[in-house]
Design a protein around this nucleic acid. Structure first.
Lengths: 221, 221
DNA sequence: AATATTTTTTAGATCAATCTAAACTTTTAT
DNA sequence: ATAAAAGTTTAGATTGATCTAAAAAATATT
């Protein structure tokens, strides 16, 4: 069984490896975990001994099958808890993350099964991120950054790429949420900002950065 | 802020001190925590430095006002989570303890407030133990062990003194639960066992030990 | 009261997680 | 291609939590 800290590292490494594809560098991990490179090296050795990653000095860490499944379990728990916090306890979108960071480490498979059932077996969390199932399977719809959507085409916000509190707060202030319907009314050439219509009601300008962070699916019909 | 382990110690010490009244000995703590006396001495020094207990060598630990309030917070969280597990996730009575032991250490006052509200501000957990309120106030009805109840008087099971899984399983097998109505039909002199009637339906014999562990309130007619 | 027993504390080790500072690789730039 | 810069690892320390073994204090026994 993994410690609290090991779980956090394997999760971070999984994220940085983009699902287990590429090797992850020490400093990348140090930065996302707000810790020092030396600490990361130590931990990487430990995770390697437990066969969660394979590790070559000065080259980086690659996540193993076992490591991936552990990471997905933690992510599953995190997203189920976030869903619980928002849907049942009425937390707002931007309040859930820190609490879910703690709750994700509770060890009880029974608890997670029952929570999943209680929530009605959701497939995505309140940020629109998919929730891996019990066996670690993730069903991901193809997501297009709003910045790449065509003019006048209806899209639904499914997810955000950068879930930082400040971005989430900004979104909620301007009325964008998971499930919101967005149409691009106009694109400005020189700075790639755009004017959009939210839920057929609100017209607003958003920056290129914001549009790149909003992941959408095209609305059929 | 207290560590996970410090919270567990202060809770155990509070319990053993019977609500902060009497001093608690090193070995008592070691036993209930399944640890060694030397570890307890170390921790007692740390808790003393944090002003959660006052400590005199070879005499024992007395819980302070601050310590008591911390302990009550942990207990409050534990009991709210147990209530959640049973009422919302349909855990059984005897499955909740280990999970609640973990959940009680989640740090988020907002979470506990919202959980409390979600549960409808319960005053007792599924074992019938009172849930301290936000300010640490506990309203405790006077509890009488069933063994001391009078013949033919109606009582309601409010709590159990010994919450061990084996006892809880036994109770649930014979149909006794928190809220059950019990009447003593007959007491046997020589071994203090008794025949009782549960919910006006089931007649059963229970031992003196069991009767002493069942805490009840007299039912006003 | 003197001795034996029990309880508690201290001393010294270990392990997880972290850090700083120094040493060592790899990469980049001149 | 060599020097400078950047990135990574090792060495050595620290803190929290735990342990065993030995010393010290309190309690019980004869």
């Amino acid at each position: 069984m993994l410690t609290f800290t090991e779980e956090n590292y394997i999760k971070a490494i999984y994220r940085l490896s983009e699902g287990g594809l590429k090797a992850v560098l020490t400093n990348e991990v140090a930065e996302t975990m707000s810790t020092k490179a030396a600490s990361v090296t130590d931990m990487i050795k430990r995770l390697s001994n437990k066969n969660l990653i394979s590790y070559e000095k000065y080259y980086g860490a690659k996540i193993t099958k076992l490591g991936k499944s552990q990471a997905l379990t933690v992510i599953r728990k995190h997203r189920l808890w976030e869903t619980f916090l928002v849907e049942k306890l009425h937390f707002t979108w931007d309040e859930v993350h820190d609490v879910a960071e703690q709750l994700e480490h509770i060890q009880s498979p029974l608890l997670i099964e029952k929570l999943d059932e209680f929530l009605g077996f959701p497939t995505a969390d309140p940020h629109g991120h998919p929730i891996p199932d019990k066996d670690g399977k993730v069903h991901t719809p193809t997501l297009i950054p709003l910045s790449e959507s065509a003019l006048n085409k209806k899209s639904v916000v499914m997810s955000v790429r950068d879930g930082s509190p400040s971005f989430l707060q900004y979104l909620s202030k301007i009325g964008i949420y998971i499930g919101a319907m967005i149409v691009i009314l106009d694109k400005t050439e020189f700075d790639s900002s755009m004017e959009v219509l939210i839920d057929n009601k609100t017209r607003i300008f958003i920056s290129r950065d914001a549009a790149q962070n909003l992941l959408t699916t095209a609305l059929m019909k």
